[in-house]
Nucleic acid binder design. Structure first.
Lengths: 168, 168
DNA sequence: CTAGTAATGTCAACAAGGCTGACATAAAAT
DNA sequence: ATTTTATGTCAGCCTTGTTGACATTACTAG
């Protein structure tokens, strides 16, 4: 398990040393910090946190989504999500409409103010992503996405793909 | 700022649509969950969390590192780190030695028990990384690392590179 | 129609892990 | 001799996660 060389089965599979894997692990750690840094700065001025950002992002992504659907995407408990949603609704950033077909469901939408905040947050995050993508070039970006997809849990991979394809 | 197409300045730079950037953002979000899932499971059985994992990882990476150095790497306050280190020392996973040259400094080392836990955690995390790397192939891995490096804050990039080169 | 199940909300309590501010100590540096 | 540095520690606060319990409403199956 603690081999230096992991697998020499294929042509160029001698690249999976523990050292390389560790570098990948550390790269994920440091990069995720950068990834969240800009929106975090914006949010800390308001009384919001990363959890609000995530909710806003996915409501914007799939307007009219139900609470249960959002729960699955975010992978938290309904109590956690509810606390966040309640403040967002109270502050007029999110609207929660009772479903017309199934009146138990709540469909979630961003208000104009919610859309404004979403744009500020994602502009900041996109700017960093854009700059990283531009520096790295198209082939690196393709590789980046391939590896990230392979790193997801199977269920999240399906969720990710579904979201990805809904946005064409 | 909300362009569909970001930059058509170069040969193949027409790939930076907002949609592509958003997919990158969501890929980071879902992949990071996968990235931390396995160690999190191990840790939740004990009374430890992700913060303990990070401390253990970097102490293992750079044995004898000082508290201050660890503080810079982890990017938290000394109070936060101290809470974590205290429990690790109390539980006999980390040893804190007073520096010989500068006696104000404490140098941190994993004990045998600490090394055992480190191995369990990193084996789990590496297994996922290895599988993702293998599925994606060497070129994708190179791209993955290039993009992640470009996404880091400049300071973290230096820290990352320093760590990377110290492990040759 | 009734019983069961599903979707949601809410209350309470708790824990991890961030944060700030204040203060203490020892040792190095000036 | 004074200041600065490295570290530890106490107290308190916040966000965001958790579990468990319970209520409401409404769809669904028998």
């Amino acid at each position: 398990m603690a081999d230096t060389r992991a697998s020499i089965s294929g042509e160029s599979l001698l690249f999976l040393t523990d050292e390389q894997l560790r570098q990948g692990i550390e790269a994920m750690f440091f990069a995720y910090r950068g990834f969240t840094a800009d929106p975090d700065r914006i949010l800390s001025d308001m009384s919001y946190g990363r959890a609000h950002h995530r909710a806003i992002h996915f409501i914007n992504r799939a307007p009219g989504t139900t609470v249960n659907n959002l729960l699955n995407i975010l992978g938290v408990t309904k109590q956690s999500l509810n606390r966040v949603l309640r403040t967002l609704v109270e502050d007029g950033l999110v609207e929660s409409r009772v479903g017309q077909s199934d009146k138990r469901e709540r469909h979630l939408f961003l208000t104009d103010a919610g859309g404004d905040l979403e744009r500020r947050l994602s502009d900041a995050q996109r700017a960093r992503m854009r700059s990283a993508f531009r520096d790295a070039g198209p082939e690196a970006v393709a590789g980046f996405r391939t590896v990230l997809e392979a790193m997801m849990d199977a269920e999240m991979q399906r969720t990710y793909t579904r979201l990805k394809e809904s946005g064409l």
